[in-house]
Design a protein around this nucleic acid. Structure first.
Lengths: 339, 339
DNA sequence: TTGTATGCGTTATCAG
DNA sequence: CTGATAACGCATACAA
């Protein structure tokens, strides 16, 4: 163990150079990818650096290189199972390509998303990934004009400029209806939320359209935000009357879990005997035995991987404004009667 | 909407100054807290800045101010309910005091935690919060010597130097035993994991000690990492024999959920009729009706708030090496028979 | 291969 | 209150 002097401050390349008895540039070159230094020089520098506890200042480095290797991830409710999983995958991906993720919460008010986007500019982020929230179009444009790559996940507002990564909500929504129909459900409900997120709305509407085409009406409830509690509340509303639905599409697994619990524990309803339930996302809890929820899997790893390669690839400017759609595959479990 | 020229690069204070017809310093002062500028000047500058889409470069600012307003949060398995909740609370807290959180994954191997800590130094982070993982003591010291504030959550390895924020695992572990004992359980098991995290071990040992004092033996299983699947596996191991336990303490709610599901769906065991279960953390799922898990609540908001104030307070140097212990209160639900 | 000099975008200091 | 100038820590073009 080398004895580090408790300088109570960060060590600079200058100090390393002095200790090693070389020039500042030599130190710089030692830590710069692809610079030419002799082995003896490198060893001397590295030893001095180790001794002082020197670490390259990425902030100063970014100042020169104009792109900061920082990637901002903007999201509300990071603690939600789906978002947490996506965030985790993104953080890992960024790290894999030598970038680092800066997480910004945009929860709540409208101004919050704006402030988040400003932070992204303040830190000269190389890219901004929007997990949720509604960023003002004008500010998104500023980000792009500043040379940033802006990537929107499941926020298909049809803004041009940012790159969009979405899931095929339309297809899945329609498929969900047919799955319930084939299971013999006749009185069908949709459990949604007041969030009004584009992808949630798309699922709702696709499901409803398919039902209409089949000559069936659909009852839609939106008791609150996208949460377990809202799903539970939806169950209390939908299942208390005499004219109960026998099939439900919940636009999110979280809603589905709440809905199922209300059905079982408030009304003693058997799933899937008396009621079939379909969710969306395939969060961890969907596979837990208590739920065994039939749902649609968002290929989170694939999506994060795609985004990572988009950011890692230097020639990815061609992807600007591009839209990539991933397929959400149905995962059959036990909350829907077998056909 | 002002027409921004698509410069494809970030705007500098210099450009704003030229457009506004003032000096660079004037621009700087306009955006610096507590600098004195005339109203007319400020207005002129702000208008020019708006027009060009200027945003202060925090990287350059940090260069001169020596503390970067960046706080690194290091953790493995951010997508886990407990960690996700803590992360979310921390991110919100940092934002509240004008800091920004940089998330670094330290999953897996030993070198990973080291690399994470290096990142923290590279970005001249003002503070580092370790959510999980075992950072090498030498590197922690380098961080502290560099003027960083290092905060460890629930990693009570008794390292001196870093600030520790922990939960009273000993007390809770003992309490858990007495709760099971009072519920009339005689054959008691502990479900733990192979993670070997100090806080998990502390819970185990405290529980076991209390049992020993009461003259009872305890069966401990550690089927794998701290996850739902491990809890499920623990259930399969413990409940298959003829000599089943009638009470179990799971050192984590995630383990408890898996354990309960195995008990109910693999063996048809009634909880709490035939088997009482206690968890730890009070994650969201613990309150879901399917589980209604009696557990110990980690005061996540309070802990995050404490950490936030520690980082926000400029005179918090006195807290270096300090240890703050939070109390984990029991939350009674329905997985344990009422006394 | 090595050292010297310059500039990146800010803020702080000092004159005016 | 305002403008000029010197840092901050680093990478690089250029000269040796």
């Amino acid at each position: 163990m080398s004895e580090e002097k408790p300088s109570r401050s960060f060590v600079s390349a200058q100090q390393v150079a002095e200790l090693a008895g070389v020039s500042r540039s030599a130190v710089s070159r030692t830590f710069t990818q692809g610079a030419s230094v002799s082995d003896t020089m490198r060893r001397k520098v590295q030893q001095a650096a180790e001794e002082l506890g020197y670490h390259v200042n990425h902030l100063a480095r970014s100042l020169i290189q104009e792109n900061s290797r920082i990637v901002c991830v903007i999201g509300a409710e990071i603690n939600t199972p789906y978002q947490a999983r996506m965030l985790e995958a993104l953080v890992r991906g960024m790290q894999r390509i030598g970038r680092v993720a800066m997480v910004i919460n945009s929860a709540g008010d409208r101004g919050s998303a704006e402030a988040a986007l400003r932070q992204t500019l303040n830190y000269r982020a190389k890219a901004t990934i929007v997990l949720s929230g509604a960023p003002p179009a004008a500010l998104v444009r500023t980000c792009i004009n500043s040379g940033q790559q802006v990537i929107l996940i499941n926020r298909d507002d049809h803004l041009d400029g940012p790159t969009n990564v979405v899931v095929d909500n339309d297809h899945a929504g329609r498929e969900a209806f047919h799955m319930l129909q084939r299971a013999g459900c006749r009185k069908i409900a949709v459990v949604s939320s007041t969030a009004g997120t584009p992808s949630l709305v798309a699922r709702e509407q696709a499901f409803e359209a398919a039902a209409r085409e089949a000559g069936l009406g659909v009852r839609i409830v939106r008791p609150g935000p996208t949460s377990y509690a809202s799903g539970f509340a939806a169950g209390e509303v939908l299942l208390s009357g005499s004219d109960r639905p026998d099939g439900a599409f919940c636009v999110t697994d979280l809603l589905a879990c709440g809905f199922m619990d209300a059905a079982r524990f408030e009304f003693g309803i058997d799933i899937p005997g008396e009621l079939c339930v379909i969710g969306f996302d395939d969060i961890d809890q969907a596979s837990w035995s208590s739920y065994a929820l039939t749902t649609f899997r968002q290929p989170v790893e694939d999506m994060a991987g795609h985004i990572t390669s988009l950011i890692g690839d230097p020639a990815a400017d061609s992807a600007a404004g591009q839209r990539t759609c991933f397929h959400a595959l149905p995962v059959w479990r036990r909350s829907v009667r077998p056909k």
